[in-house]
């Protein structure tokens, strides 16, 4: 696997998310490009590589967020594991299934965020919470084919 390429890709994506993601906002929600990449790695790379990249992506995302705990550092490798387990049971060989899987993972990520905030006593109106959970997950899922097309030349065809 050409790992340095992926590390560079993560850094570019993180910088892009920090600087220009606001211009991709749709109904005040941003897509989670790093989560989409995590799923792509889980599907196309060796499990250990996907796992390591997931940890790195999660850590870099946590750098820019206002979270007390490294929530993405924990969640991203978990989603790699979930995707790997699911890909053993169902065929993830077409875009629709991949998008559906990403939609579910994104919804789960957002629910975890919301629950963490609830446990901290932070109030967010339910309308806004639902808008973020559903719209951002849908938006992230819709961007998966584009991301896959852009990053496909980087992905090694050799499977696990």
């Amino acid at each position: 696997m050409k790992k340095p390429r992926f590390v560079v890709l993560i850094i570019i994506l993180v910088l892009f998310e920090a600087v220009a993601l606001d211009y991709l906002k749709l109904f005040s929600t941003k897509p989670d490009l790093l989560l989409a990449m995590v799923l792509i790695w889980a599907i196309f790379l060796r499990p250990t590589d996907a796992f390591k990249l997931g940890v790195l992506a999660g850590f870099l995302k946590d750098l820019f967020s206002e979270n007390i705990f490294g929530i993405n550092t924990l969640l991203f490798p978990c989603w790699v594991w979930v995707s790997l387990q699911l890909s053993k049971r169902i065929a993830v060989d077409n875009h629709f299934i991949r998008m559906l899987l990403l939609f579910i993972l994104s919804i789960l990520t957002n629910i975890v965020y919301r629950l963490v905030m609830l446990s901290m006593g932070i109030y967010i109106p339910w309308v806004i919470s639902l808008r973020i959970i559903i719209l951002s997950s849908f938006y992230t899922a819709c961007l998966l084919p584009i991301l896959l097309k852009i990053t496909y030349p980087l992905i090694s065809i050799r499977k696990r």
Binding site: V14, L21, D22, D32, L33, R114
Partner: peptide
């Protein structure tokens, strides 16, 4: 301002 938080659940700038 040189950066913003990438997630939807916080509003942060660098």
């Amino acid at each position: 301002v040189i950066g913003r938080s990438p997630d939807n659940w916080s509003s942060v700038i660098l």
